[in-house]
Simulated scan of single mutants.
Amino acid sequence: MKLDNTNQPEALPYEKLALLGIDRKKADKLPQEVKQNLVSGEVTPLMQVSINARNGDV
């Protein structure tokens, strides 16, 4: 199955990725295999992200 985000914008969980600091532009640049794994709920490579917690920790 080939994932094509231009025809299926809902395929990737853009809102959830944004919470991790990965905007739509960055998500669309992910390798095809990573996108397929994300959509199917499989394990993806580790990505370094910074998230601000409610207590101020990053």
Results as ranks from 00 to 15, higher is better:
A18C: 03
Q32L: 15
P45M: 12
D28F: 03
N55T: 15
G41S: 13
E10R: 09
S40W: 08
V34L: 05
S50Q: 12
Y14S: 03
N5S: 01
V49E: 05
K26E: 14
D57I: 10
L12M: 09
T44R: 02
E15V: 12
V43A: 15
T44W: 00
Q8E: 11
E42V: 02
T44H: 00
Y14F: 11
E15D: 13
E10I: 02
E42C: 03
D28A: 10
E42A: 10
K25H: 09
L20G: 00
L30P: 01
L3P: 00
G41N: 11
T6R: 01
S50M: 10
K26C: 09
M1R: 01
N37A: 15
K25I: 13
A18W: 05
P9V: 14
Q36V: 08
N5C: 03
M1W: 03
M47A: 14
V49P: 00
G41Q: 09
V58P: 01
L12F: 06
G56V: 11
N7A: 06
L17F: 07
E10L: 05
L12I: 11
D28R: 10
A27V: 10
N55A: 04
E15I: 11
L12W: 08
L12R: 07
L3A: 01
E33Y: 07
N52Y: 06
K26L: 14
V34W: 08
P31W: 08
P9Q: 05
E42Y: 03
L46Y: 07
D23L: 02
Q48G: 04
L38E: 08
L38R: 09
M1P: 00
P13H: 04
D28H: 04
N5Q: 04
I22A: 02
I22K: 01
T6Q: 04
D23H: 02
K2D: 09
L30K: 02
I22Y: 02
K16M: 11
D57V: 11
L12Y: 06
G21K: 05
A27Q: 08
D4T: 03
R54C: 08
A53F: 06
K35F: 13
G21C: 07
E33H: 10
Q48I: 14
L38A: 07
M1N: 00
G41P: 01
R54E: 14
N37F: 04
L12S: 01
R24C: 00
L20T: 09
T6Y: 01
N5M: 05
G41R: 05
Q36K: 10
N52F: 03
L3N: 00
G56R: 05
K26T: 15
